[in-house]
Nucleic acid binder design. Sequence first.
DNA 1: TGCCAGGCCGGGT
DNA 2: ACCCGGCATGGC
Length: 228
Amino acid sequence: MVAKGQLLTIYSELRRAFGHQHWWPARTPFEVIVGAVLTQNTNWRNVEKAIRNLEEAGLLSARALGQADPRRLQRLIRPAGYYRQKAGRLLGVARWVALHCAPEDEGLCGLKARSTDELRRGLLSLSGIGPETADSILLYALAKPVFVVDAYTVRVMGRHGLIEPGGSYADVQQEFHDRLPQDVELLKDYHAQLVELGKRYCKKRYPDCARCPLYPLLGPPLIVEADL
DNA sequence: TGCCAGGCCGGGT
DNA sequence: ACCCGGCATGGC
């Protein structure tokens, strides 16, 4: 892995190139949670349509969503794909939120008051909430200092040999936790920057590394073909 | 036109 | 403990 200051240097370069990303794009913490489930292996543009549908249906609150008819839910979120699976996942997470937060608690203070570890275990116990979705919710909805690892993170860092090949989610996350300050705003924007970088220059099939803002810093990627 | 997108689960080695 | 197929829509 990289030296301690290297991750911050990488962030500075990305930030300079792309500007602050202002993630997560949502009006309420609960909308973040909904988006985190809907965006699983799915283009964000499709997710926006689904969220819009839920908003028009008045289902962007934990209680309303948790009591929604599953078939209706499926129809509303269809643009986001995997809609039969995701409808059930949304019901589950919505009921979990409603269980811990009062109806008027739009800021989800009832959840934020709990410890990160307890929240993470609770989220992972829900069906359809894996490590990345759980950490996205912890960081962007509940403001917990957690680094979110996603496919772009692994691909970008992996191609430059900056993480151990074959490392697990927990391994990669640990590297970042060891080398970054526990600063929620930094962690939020760092992940957002890596996604932006990935979308522009580190696609699976057509990487455009020479124009990547990290190129002057890191040079050409060591590995391009393998999707680490 | 295919390939891909801000994963996760369950069954098989 | 990994590895893999399935899940589904819309955009480029």
